[in-house]
Design a protein around this nucleic acid. Structure first.
Lengths: 143, 143
DNA sequence: GTTCAAATATTGTCATGGCAACTATTATTT
DNA sequence: AAATAATAGTTGCCATGACAATATTTGAAC
């Protein structure tokens, strides 16, 4: 890798991820879905993990505890999820989607899936494997 | 690309970039350099572009005008850069590093260069080319 | 030359992210 | 059992990012 290449790679990834986020956000907004991309990520990870705690959710989606708290506050206010006290451990909350939450998740999923498809056009399965390997390698290098 | 792969790629990139940023930040902080990663990026792009305007800088590093304004406010307060009025166009500022700014940039550069090297271990030139191509393709897809 | 449109920068609001401090609860140690 | 440590979650502060609104200045149209 040349010197100038080394300079650019953080910035390259950073600007691309910002652009993808903005694209996904626009798709959601255009579909009249009142969710940010991060709120979507949270919703989408509660669905297959009903009853998950806030900490577990944070670990799962790489967000720290304060960020989880604040996103959940918003989702509760929007009546998309509920925090239930855990009987086992009264420090914990049990997270679940409301009926409206499930409905909105379903609607948003179609939009997001379409966005993922469009954003990956002209790229192959091997590209995907390479991307994952490169991301995982960097992740391990900076751990 | 399989369904489950499609689901994961935004999140994969997002969490990796967060980790890289945190790694670079720790390197700076450990070296007693009072700069955030984004403040570093701004400084580092004024150096080879002395006299650049705020808008041009924003375009260069993919940050919007308000973000540039606020990061520059901080850098001015830290006495690392100065905003000079443009004689050609009184709407514009001309950005330059102070002597302290140049000194800190030099010190930070060594830290960042080392971090880049470490973060890219076990990856090849071809990996870099692939990463850039994939990022550019996605960027174009969502444009 | 005045009017209108565009460009530059700033400010405001809200969402997210990192960090530290804090409360409440549970687990461990003795 | 009491003291201590660890865990779960919240709140505060500041930096960044997206978006909208604004002021100032410049450029274009007439």
């Amino acid at each position: 890798m040349t010197h100038s290449d080394k300079r650019a790679y953080f910035f390259k990834i950073d600007s691309t991820i910002k652009r993808i986020r903005s694209f996904m956000q626009k798709n959601l907004t255009d579909a009249n879905i009142d969710l940010t991309v991060d709120q979507w990520v949270v919703l989408d990870h509660i669905v297959p993990n009903a009853g998950i705690s806030q900490n577990e959710l944070g670990t799962l989606i790489c967000k720290d505890a304060p960020t989880i708290t604040r996103i959940l506050d918003i989702l509760v206010k929007k009546e998309l999820i509920v925090r239930k006290m855990s009987d086992m451990d009264r420090r914990k909350f049990i997270l679940e989607l409301t009926p409206q939450g499930k409905e909105l998740h379903k609607k948003a999923f179609a939009i997001i899936a379409n966005g993922r498809k469009k954003s990956w056009e002209n790229l192959s399965d091997k590209d995907y494997d390479d991307l994952v390997r490169i991301m995982d390698t960097i992740y391990a290098n900076v751990d």
